[in-house]
Design a protein around this nucleic acid. Structure first.
Length: 598
RNA sequence: GGUUCGGUAGCUCAGCUGGAUAGAGCAACAGCCUUCUAAGCUGUGGGGCUCGGGUUCGAAUCCCGACCGGAUCACCA
């Protein structure tokens, strides 16, 4: 039980005892005391005045006295206006640190047990016709991070990827390759598979535009030309053949998708993301039909004259939604209905089914949840759309047609280049082998990119300025990593001096800065809880930044290895070690590694 | 038009389950390395929290309404 919980509990009994009334925990507001005021915890008295029927000062004094006599950890109290400020004992704070040290990387986390709820997080979900770009990067990082956070908060997490491996867009790359590829392969060209296939998607688009222009020059209207361009018709024909199971088309499809998967795997690996369950749309796109037909028979859905099947959501302020075309084929929504049902069937009653998908699909998920509810699935309420904002460039949105797309692989390469340039200039890694130094550059580059994207609240649109955005100073990943490296260096030096890196200490008091650090350490668990509840990796990012910022001040103001008092020295080493542990742990929840030197 | 998400310092963002003078980073300027990694630390300047109402002892935070911006409302995925 945290000190906050304890205070809350005692206030509830105090109010009961002193005023004979029951308060709910909502009226008990406990916060950290402002820096300028003496004390550690503050209870806001105003909400309780109504019950005590006394002045705020009297109420605060009575409650303060009660708390001091009932809670060992509270030394004293003071009252300022309507605020009751409590001073927590040094012994308590030191025990918090002691306890954190003992738990190591598990500190702040909840264990996963046999009865922990299962949560599925679907993220990434790429199309297989082009390589990953900056938007996918945000998606992957958010999905991976929230999975880690949920696991740390005591959930069994299944990371799922639903690969969109079928459809007209794939056929476009396929037909372009067939017509213009001359048998090019990743091996023959040295290109990464996803980039190679992406190139043919561009080739298709060029050829398509050319044909449209030719048709228009020959007197067709724009609409006619767009509908009749031969290469588009060929792509459509290919899709039909695919659905019929044409061996030649299937073989080409498998080959080219294979190239893309190799490319994706490399990118995923480099980003450090992985999946527990990969779904392919080619295997799931027919799901949901039966349920829709069943819903039609039960009168929940309706049919139009042309035989198409719809859900009527006008009563909920939305529109009608098509679920089956007149020819009986299904649309994306139908598939999502089917896969959701399938997932709850396979994994039982999950605590949550999270979809990490951009905010352009807000409407889709609103409709999905609503239709499932109408069909009678209670768990539909457990669907959570983790909606995130677009990543914009200084001159607006990324447009593949205008070539302003920021490619994920290129971006990571340029980040590493930048990290290496800075590192070489500083020269702190000069005694490492090239290989080891390169590893550190990679860690820093990834840290910069990931932290940059995760420190922003998911739902917000974020700006990415390739030239200026990703910094290595200030509120950045490398800043945090740097602090970790510094502490590691400190601990190495201590070891070299024969000072054992302590996992405990004996001390009776510490200075204010140290106490502030311990207080921040004490908040870690509740931050994880909140980040899980709000699906917000940014909470973790901001917390770690606060911690590190505070530690750097401490590091600057006090010497550790040169401290003469052995007990204080041991304590400071222990405190430093714990900060490093939390940095590693918190950054781990963001999918960011921390180096031991940089 | 319907739905939905935003609007906090010049720029990028925290703070939003209401609480005591609104915080960082970048950019600008001024300091701190013969001492544990200066990718650091300290200081200065910079904000009518889009606007207007309401609830409250108290509102950047909650409610309503404007205004501005994004997304979406396809027999696309």
């Amino acid at each position: 039980m945290t000190i906050d919980d304890l205070i809350e509990q005692e206030i509830i009994s105090a109010v009961q005892e002193l005023y004979g009334a029951t308060v709910d925990s909502k009226s008990v507001q406990i916060s950290d005391t402002k820096k300028e005021i003496a004390g550690d915890k503050t209870v806001v008295i105003f909400p309780l005045v109504r019950i005590s029927k006394k002045s705020p000062e009297d109420t605060a004094n009575e409650l303060g006295a009660y708390l001091v006599s009932h809670i060992d950890a509270i030394d004293s109290y003071s009252v300022i206006k309507g605020f009751l400020n409590l001073t927590i004992s040094m012994k308590y704070w030191l025990s918090v640190l002691q306890n954190a040290l003992q738990q190591g990387l598990e500190y702040g986390k909840k264990p996963v047990t046999a009865d922990s709820p299962t949560v599925m997080v679907e993220f990434s979900s790429p199309n297989t016709n082009k390589p990953l770009h900056l938007g996918h990067v945000r998606n992957n990082l958010l999905g991976y991070s929230i999975s880690q956070i949920l696991a740390a908060n005591g959930n069994k997490v299944i990371k799922a990827n639903l690969v969109n491996d079928r459809g007209i867009h794939i056929c476009k790359s396929m037909i372009a390759w067939k017509l213009f590829g001359n048998g090019e392969t990743p091996q023959s060209s040295g290109l990464k598979g996803d980039h190679l296939v992406g190139n043919y998607y561009v080739v298709f688009d060029k050829e398509y535009k050319k044909q449209v222009a030719e048709l228009m020059a020959a007197g067709k209207s724009e609409d006619e030309a767009k509908a009749e361009a031969p290469i588009l018709l060929q792509a459509r024909e290919m899709l039909v053949k695919w659905e019929q199971g044409d061996p030649e088309v299937l073989s080409l499809w498998k080959t080219m998708n294979g190239w893309v998967y190799e490319g994706f795997d490399a990118t995923y690996k480099r980003m450090g993301v992985s999946f527990d369950h990969v779904y392919y749309e080619s295997q799931t796109y027919l799901l949901g039909k039966k349920v829709v037909i069943d819903g039609l028979q039960r009168g929940i859905l309706f049919q139009k004259e042309d035989k198409s099947v719809w859900a009527d959501l006008t009563g909920d302020g939305l529109d009608q939604k098509l679920l089956l075309r007149p020819d009986g084929t299904s649309v994306y929504m139908t598939q999502d209905i089917g896969t959701a049902i399938e997932r709850f069937r396979e994994y039982g009653d999950m605590g949550e089914l999270i979809y990490v998908v951009g905010n352009e699909q807000n409407y889709h998920f609103q409709v999905l949840s609503l239709i499932l509810q109408k069909l009678g699935y209670d768990w539909a309420k457990k669907i959570y759309h983790m909606s995130y904002g677009m990543v914009e460039l200084p001159d607006g949105k990324m447009k593949s047609r205008e070539g302003t797309v920021v490619d994920a692989d290129d971006l990571m390469d340029s980040m590493v280049k930048e990290a290496k340039a800075i590192s070489d200039e500083l020269g702190k890694l000069s005694d490492l082998s090239d290989e080891d130094a390169a590893e550190v550059h990679e860690i820093i580059a990834q840290g910069a990119l990931k932290y940059f994207m995760l420190k922003v609240e998911p739902r917000k649109t974020m700006l990415f300025n390739p030239k200026e955005s990703i910094d290595f100073n200030g509120n950045t990943g490398p800043f945090i990593q740097y602090t970790h490296a510094r502490i590691c260096s400190l601990l190495r030096k201590a070891a070299a001096q024969g000072v054992e890196v302590p996992s405990s200490f004996a001390l009776e008091s510490c200075n204010d800065k140290e106490k502030e650090l311990i207080k921040t350490i004490s908040r870690y668990g509740s931050i994880i809880e909140l980040a899980a509840k709000d699906h917000a990796p940014s909470y973790i990012a901001n917390y770690v930044y606060d911690l590190v910022k505070m530690y750097n001040q401490f590091y600057h103001d006090y010497s550790i290895l040169n401290e003469e008092d052995a007990a204080v020295k041991t304590f400071r080493l222990a405190l430093s070690k714990e900060v490093a542990t939390i940095v590693a742990s918190g950054m781990g929840l963001l999918g960011i590694r921390v180096p031991e030197r940089m």
